[in-house]
């Protein structure tokens, strides 16, 4: 099948690549760009481990074709820290012990970024509902909620 040329921005850098239409965005990020910080935890769009931002909004990169990202701007966990400074959510996840094995963490943080962009001062229940598309098997979510609240308090939704 004919490959297609796409041009997109990932973590602030512009890339142009020929890709097979069937290539998923997450596979493009991991296998073509080597951005292995974005992980794959399921194949049915349930777990949210692969969450990245497209044009500033969270999506599951296992459920978007790379060709669909043509012309768009993608932010992954690897592009979140700026000038060597951790994003407030990254810092809060560490300080609140919001991760254990770390496998859900990239997606969890990226979804939290999107969540706070839409609701800068959420209630605990709103945080929980905002993370309903992300599964974590280690933390019981309690410290994740705490981390999002800490970051919200610090004005993470700049």
């Amino acid at each position: 099948m004919a490959s297609r040329t796409i041009t997109l921005t990932v973590d602030g850098v512009s890339y142009t690549d020929d890709v097979e239409p069937r290539l998923l965005l997450v596979q493009y990020l991991r296998e073509v760009l080597g951005k292995t910080g974005t992980l794959v935890g399921c194949d049915t769009t349930n777990c949210g481990a692969c969450t990245v931002l497209v044009d500033g909004e969270s999506i599951k990169s296992c459920t978007m074709l790379a060709v669909e990202a043509d012309g768009h701007e993608v932010t992954t966990i690897e592009g979140l820290a700026t000038d060597g400074q951790l994003h407030p959510l990254q810092k809060a996840f560490n300080e609140c012990h919001a991760l254990q094995c770390g496998f859900c963490t990239s997606g969890m943080i990226m979804q939290s970024v999107s969540l706070l962009a839409e609701n800068s001062r959420p209630t605990d229940q709103e945080v929980r509902e905002g993370l309903e598309g992300n599964l974590c098997r280690c933390t019981g979510y309690q410290n994740i909620v705490a981390a999002v609240q800490q970051a919200a308090g610090e004005g993470a939704a700049r």
């Binding site: 194949d43 769009t45 296992c62 459920t63 978007m64 074709l65 669909e68």
Partner: peptide, 26 residues
């Protein structure tokens, strides 16, 4: 036809369908 793809892509990933052409409405 591919609209948002949130139902179609899982089906394609599980190979419960194998279209020859995908037309995106994006």
């Amino acid at each position: 036809v591919l609209a948002g793809g949130q139902s179609l892509l899982p089906v394609l990933k599980l190979r419960m369908a194998d279209p020859e052409l995908v037309v995106s409405l994006q």
